[in-house]
Simulated assay, not measured.
Amino acid sequence: MSRRLLAAFLLALSVCAPAQAVRIKEVAAVQGVRSNQLTGYGLVVGLDGTGDQTTQMPYTTQSVANYLQQLGITLPPAQASQLQLKNVAAVIVTATLPAFAQPGQTLDINVSSMGNSKSLRGGTLVATPLRGADGEIYALAQGNLVIGGAGASAAGSKVQINQLSAGRIPNGAQVERAVPTALNEGDSVNLGLNAADFETARRVAQAINTRLGGGIARALDGRTVQVQAPVDANARVSFIAQLEELTLEQPVPAARVVLNARTGSVVLNQAVTLGPCAIAHGNLSITINSQPVISQPGPFSNGRTVVAEQASIQINQQPGILIQVPNAPLLSDVVRALNALGATPQDLVTILQAIKASGALHAELEVI
């Protein structure tokens, strides 16, 4: 094969090569299929003297008294208020109830101290009902805590690794009630996009109509795509499974720059472009030195020695150099232009905000 034919063959392959594709399940999800948050209040027992200080946490003592009363042990109010329980801690238990969870299935739970307990290591969570937003009980939690930390203290010294006031119980809760879903209701299902974008909604509807037949999918708005689905439950599950595996050309996201004002982190996506502009950036430093000055009175003057402070302030401002930033149509060009400024991440946050205000940054700024 000659070089000319080989070049033409490689050019044809590059033209026919498919663009980067994503599955529908990666950009959208079936509406109504969602998880639910559960929470509950409980007690962790069996601690080695690291529980709540009941004199400062009266609700722990009250909870223990109420628990004993449920077991048939009633304490007089005077004795209940004087309980000193160093091996008990009041905790908040949280869990996520996944979609389609049925009674008898188990869940992982998180247990966090809500008092002044020093450590939950070695503790056991007693039976704790977990409630949903409607106040109904959907799961029951109980078990031994797993703490991913360690600590020791003696003679005023303390060493601690990781967090000791929160832990986890794998399969520590059992589902008692199922949450009904509207998956099999009606003659259609709605796909909710992970991010609102009209172009993505159009491409999802177009991919479904191309692969499964024209007219069964339509974009209702920038975040919802309605798809006609079989009425039979088994056929609908198979249809949704096939639907989620359909691929479409990866949409170009809206240009966005995410700024973290606390850490100075800056993240840009591939659609960010930069227009030509000029930037001048300089550093200003202020140095304050303080020196003690001692005033000593003369002999036999009945005066006293006075210690004062003398401060000197110096301001050093480096000259700002005006740097011309060329047009940057690609993300790599934007990164190269911003690196040429030599600014710190904290300064870069302010510079990007100023460039956006001037109209040279073609992206949306989001501060988190």
Rank of each mutant, 00 (worst) to 15 (best):
R3D: 06
L5H: 10
L11N: 04
C16T: 15
Q20I: 12
A21I: 02
I24K: 04
S35V: 14
G51R: 05
Q56D: 00
T60P: 09
A65V: 12
Y67V: 14
L71Q: 09
I73K: 01
A80E: 03
L85Q: 01
L85H: 02
V88A: 10
A90H: 05
T106E: 02
L107M: 03
V111H: 01
S113Q: 08
M114C: 15
G115Q: 14
N116T: 12
V126W: 08
A127G: 09
L130E: 06
D134P: 06
A139L: 11
A141V: 11
I147L: 13
A150G: 07
K158N: 10
V175T: 10
A182W: 03
G186T: 04
D187K: 10
S188V: 05
E199D: 09
T200P: 00
R203W: 03
G214K: 15
R218L: 11
V225P: 02
D232Q: 12
L243I: 06
E245Y: 03
R262V: 13
L268M: 06
P276Q: 15
I286H: 06
I294T: 14
G303P: 15
Q314R: 13
I321S: 14
A328W: 00
N339H: 09
T344G: 04
P345Q: 07
I351R: 05
K356H: 14
S358W: 04
H362K: 12
E366Y: 12
